[in-house]
Design a protein around this nucleic acid. Sequence first.
DNA 1: TCAAAAGTGTTAGATTTACACCCATGA
DNA 2: TCATGGGTGTAAATCTAACACTTTTGA
Lengths: 224, 224
Amino acid sequence: MTFYNEHSKVWLSVDCIIFGFDEGKLKVLIGKRQMDPGRGEWSLYGGFVAADESVDDAATRTLYELTGLRNLFMRQVGAFGNVDRDPGERVVSIAYYALINVKDYDDELRLQHGVKWVDINEIPQLYSDHNEMVRKARKLMQQKLAQEPVGFRLLPSLFTLTQLQNLYEAVNGAELDKRNFRKRIKEMDFIEKTELVDKTSSKRGAYLYRFNKRAYNEAPNFKI
Amino acid sequence: MTFYNEHSKVWLSVDCIIFGFDEGKLKVLIGKRQMDPGRGEWSLYGGFVAADESVDDAATRTLYELTGLRNLFMRQVGAFGNVDRDPGERVVSIAYYALINVKDYDDELRLQHGVKWVDINEIPQLYSDHNEMVRKARKLMQQKLAQEPVGFRLLPSLFTLTQLQNLYEAVNGAELDKRNFRKRIKEMDFIEKTELVDKTSSKRGAYLYRFNKRAYNEAPNFKI
DNA sequence: TCAAAAGTGTTAGATTTACACCCATGA
DNA sequence: TCATGGGTGTAAATCTAACACTTTTGA
């Protein structure tokens, strides 16, 4: 039984904007495209949507293929559907962004896929409309981070307040006042201070904090 | 030349959430579905993406088909791609929302298409995942209206401050203080008072205002 | 002993919120 | 004349933003 035969079909792909935070910078994973058309151009990592999977599932699968990680924070950026966006065929792509902790990504697996972390402010020209996808993803991600405590997804599970502040500064592209920042953090009971101290970035050492999801769900008073 | 033959193709449709403001209420256009599968169910108005048009163009065309209006404010809501979302075939749909002034929509054309305005708070069960589309569109529209002066798209080009306030109240689902509201409007130089008076809703009459796009572009200090 | 990052409060200014009465008019 | 919606200002409370010094410790 077919209902829609008079209409034409298209290929559907997903493209992933994977954000990481390293060396105080917000970064994105890109690689050289390994298929025609566009072989060799810088590109986001993507894949095709199969007949038996939802578009979201295709994105989840693609992210897993690339990173070996599950349960990533992932959101849809939108559909990109210009007729000639793909130089070969009519392909409509649904972009997704994801947040990962750079340290969770096995370096060998990363090299196998030939992708690398690039500073969000130094992204080269990318294949097709991928630059536009990155721009839109970045904007949505910024908004999301200002509304919900998902920044933790970019950090190790234990982090210092300086790391957290640097993260927000990198995402917003603006400096924050240290005392005001820490004041606000103190008001959020779901950001828990531990007794552990990190000495990798200072002689004195900085207390490590953790995000308590349960506490957040009970009192989600987030404001940065 | 074909590059992607090993992958499967899907039908792509667009679905439109068309917002209007009437009788002090925020409304959406819905109709009874006139095709199989799902014939007779309440549904959003939609259409298929043709081979030679972008997804955005398909939405623009569909909106024009339905309303006879061009240059509507329109934004993408997102892709809806569950495998079984359409009971007949694999169809992925890209949802768009649009803002129109109810008075601009010719009633005869509306009846020809068999659609009607329904209060956003009284939407019946809709075909497939259309209720989810409406929810997401509403949320995005609320955010947009809080950030940019697009509410005017839902009003006649001349409007009273009471109308404008009622609009924002309907969209946010919360009452606003009249004096504070008008204070803020006064600060926005791109909302211009005219010497015209509307007497349809009071004996005394209320001054009519208009949105000056050029002035907004020069000093876009919008804050509601 | 000193360089480098961690940690800590206060205050002025800006913004937000709450609130009540007079005005103009047509019925 | 009166019912109805239109129009206006002030003050308290809250929030935001600016600002500088002490602590700890490994090199």
